[in-house]
């Protein structure tokens, strides 16, 4: 298929442009740094200090510590990506090229999402490197990567779908405000206070994946609340289901945007 190469070209350059965003690197560095320095009742400081603490537990604690706040930065950094071609007036030229809007959308998604995840991955690797030295356990880096893939990456995909598409309708500033509000309400607020999806399979903070990796419920996974069918026991299969649900839910807005854009062109 000729469309694949063109999609990869979009992906390559959208990646390049996003990864050059200095504000993204600075924000992630500051947030990750302050999370690492702070005590939030769940961070790596709560992992057993003994040298024999399992790498799986140590690195999962790092991953879910980061996943509490870093996805907010993902949303902020991605909110302008699809709007940008309109603002920079590059949309006209792109529309005169053979790749269709579907290929451009897919390429933009893949490129900007991987670039947005890069600083967070770097933060995990720094943490893993630190733990390797501190605890002398060579398994820290592999488990750091696994925890990133299970906890942070699904959050990134979920957030990206909405952060790319919603600003087309809402404008980027309004989306950013609403998104921060959503993050605290939908991930951290307890259902006892207000009806919220906190602790369900559809919680991008990664409650289920982190609970499964740790072997003990964390981040309110499975806490009673509305939509009780989305709140099973935090087992391995529930964690896998949560990851799949988050990824699919993140792709829905992209599919919708793809269909609508295709129709606008001929309107």
């Amino acid at each position: 298929m000729s469309g694949v190469r063109e999609t990869l070209a979009v992906c390559r350059y959208e990646f390049r442009m996003q990864i050059r965003k200095r504000s993204l690197w600075i924000t992630i560095a500051l947030l990750a740094g302050s999370l690492a320095a702070g005590r939030f009742g769940m961070g790596p400081r709560y992992a057993p200090a003994s040298p024999g603490a399992p790498a799986r537990e140590v690195m999962t604690r790092w991953a879910f510590l980061f996943s509490v706040i870093l996805p907010i930065a993902f949303g902020m950094a991605l909110a302008d990506r699809l709007l940008r071609d309109r603002r920079l007036r590059t949309a006209e030229l792109l529309a005169s090229m053979p790749p269709g809007s579907g290929g451009r959308l897919t390429g933009t998604f893949l490129g900007s999402v991987t670039a947005t995840g890069a600083p967070a991955l770097a933060a995990m690797l720094v943490a893993a490197g630190y733990e390797t030295v501190r605890r002398g356990d060579p398994m820290m880096i592999p488990w750091g990567l696994a925890a990133f893939a299970a906890v942070l990456a699904p959050a990134l995909v979920f957030v990206a779908g909405y952060a790319l598409v919603c600003p087309l309708v809402l404008t980027a500033p309004l989306f950013r405000v609403l998104f921060v509000g959503y993050w605290f309400w939908g991930n951290l607020l307890l259902p006892a206070t207000l009806p919220t999806p906190t602790g369900s399979l559809l919680t991008p903070i990664g409650s289920y994946a982190a609970s499964w990796l740790l072997g003990t419920p964390v981040l309110h996974a499975g806490i009673p609340g509305p939509l009780s069918f989305l709140r099973p026991e935090p087992t391995g299969s529930a964690a896998a289901g949560s990851i799949a649900l988050l990824v699919v839910a993140g792709l829905i807005p992209l599919l919708a945007a793809g269909l609508l854009r295709g129709r606008w062109r001929t309107a």
């Binding site: 007036r89 590059t90 030229l93």
Partner: peptide, 26 residues
């Protein structure tokens, strides 16, 4: 095509921009 109101990516160099367009053109 040279649009009347042509936009460019400020973060790319002309060399990169041309490479990108060339890839899009196949």
């Amino acid at each position: 095509y040279v649009p009347q109101d042509l936009g460019l990516y400020p973060d790319l160099s002309p060399r990169e921009f041309l490479d990108y367009v060339a890839l899009l053109k196949g």
